[in-house]
Amino acid sequence: MTRKLIAITACATGVAHTYMAEKALIKGAKKEGVLIKVETQGATGIGHRLTTRDVEIAEAVIFATDTKVRDSERFKGQLILQVNVSAPIKDAQKVIEDALKLADKK
């Protein structure tokens, strides 16, 4: 079965890194053969909001954030991998592999 992840990206200014991290995660996930949905929490608001259904489906959550995650109560009880927003920009595939490992451990 295809593996599924969700992620939140957010940076301090909320204009650049949030969206670069989003694109990086999607690109990385494609290479890894993983399905990912990424919610961006930027200066212009929340993009591609994750639904409770998405949270149920995903094996783990990646927080690629430099600021507080908005509405984080949605992810209570989920496996969360917390990294800096620049981590996926640097090496998204590694972040995704780490998230999958986290899910495997359980």
Partner: peptide, 16 residues
């Protein structure tokens, strides 16, 4: 938001 979104879009494209 529109102007900011344009910048965000530009940032996103740079990952391509």
């Amino acid at each position: 938001n529109t102007h900011l979104e344009l910048l965000s879009e530009l940032a996103g494209t740079l990952m391509d």
